[in-house]
């Protein structure tokens, strides 16, 4: 027997063949191992075994930790200038130096804009999306216009918003609302249109009023698409908040980004990016939690073996 399990000769094929059991050749069978080789033969006929899904705790942390380690090493070993790429420890130090009050001011300002813009955009989108999804007249009347508006890259509105609304809070919130509007609108309108006609027929047999039909059948059936739209809308709201604050702001994470660039402080830029990542992840996880709670009735593929 070879000491190295990677060196497969025909003689040790059985011992070393666990990953190769589907490709066992007759030359790998010895008279004394007939029982074991028979077992392998059965395996060879069967489809490749389904590997049990192991939970592998922390497997998602491998790459971030590697990147952090590399980011810490590279400036310290002189591979890059610490001014351009400050090590993670320096970024943490910067966050600490900014102090909780300053951080809370910036995070609070940004979060408030996202909340206001998202609420405005999502509420309008739910209303208009429902009109388009629930009524054929509504669709004919509204869908072409909103399709055309959707084709405009939302940032193209910025100059107009600045002209009309000044550089105060109003243009920022409106821009965020525009960004959040379309994913929610698409989710709501298509969600209603994709409701199974067969379920609607059951509701008709139960003689539901149009209002009860919408509330008891169409809304729950469209809920998965609506929630997906809301989740996408929220992540776009964060994105448009940064765009709005980069243009003109005296507070907020977008302001921190601009400030860091203007003062050549990459550590401040990275600190703001870190905060954006945390906030985005936090709100997305909240939406995911809501989705799981509201849609626990769904019988869907969860990524494991069906």
């Amino acid at each position: 027997m070879s000491a190295n399990p990677l060196m497969l000769s025909s003689g040790d094929a059985l011992q070393g063949s666990a990953p190769f059991s589907g490709r066992l050749t007759p030359s790998g069978q010895h008279a004394g191992e007939s029982v074991a080789s028979a077992a392998h033969a059965v395996q060879a006929d069967a489809p490749p075994p389904l590997r049990p899904v192991r939970s592998l705790p922390g497997v998602g942390l491998i790459i971030p930790l590697l990147v952090l380690a590399l980011g810490e090493m590279a400036p310290r070993l002189g591979w890059v200038s610490p001014n351009l790429l400050p090590p993670p420890s320096a970024v943490l130090q910067t966050l600490f130096d900014l102090g909780p009050l300053t951080l809370a001011t910036h995070v609070g300002a940004s979060a408030a804009r996202v909340a206001a813009g998202f609420a405005l955009g999502a509420a309008l989108a739910v209303g208009i999306g429902a009109l388009v999804g629930l009524s054929r007249l509504g669709e004919r009347l509204l869908a072409p216009s909103f399709q055309a508006l959707r084709a405009i890259p939302s940032l193209a509105w910025v100059p107009l918003l600045l002209l009309w609304l000044g550089i105060d809070e109003a243009p920022k919130i409106v821009l965020i609302a525009i960004g959040a509007f379309f994913p929610v609108y698409m989710g709501v309108s298509s969600g209603f249109r994709d409701v199974d006609r067969k379920l609607v027929e059951v509701a008709r047999m139960a003689r539901l009023s149009p209002l009860a039909l919408a509330r008891r059948v169409l809304l729950p059936a469209a809920l998965p698409a609506v929630l997906t739209g809301l989740r996408n809308g929220l992540s776009l709201a964060w994105m448009f908040m940064v765009a709005a604050e980069l243009i003109a702001a005296s507070r907020g994470l977008g302001y921190l980004l601009t400030d860091g660039r203007e003062t050549s402080r990459a550590d401040i830029v990275l600190a703001a990016i870190l905060l954006l990542a945390l906030l985005g992840k936090l709100t997305d996880s909240a939406m995911q939690w809501l989705e799981r709670r509201l849609l626990s009735w769904r019988d869907t593929f969860d990524g494991g073996h069906a």
Partner: peptide, 19 residues
């Protein structure tokens, strides 16, 4: 039209999955 006196059972169960 539709009546309480007439029930219908479809080829598929057609249950509301959220109920």
């Amino acid at each position: 039209g539709l009546s309480r006196d007439v029930g219908f059972i479809f080829q598929e169960p057609r249950l509301f999955p959220w109920l």
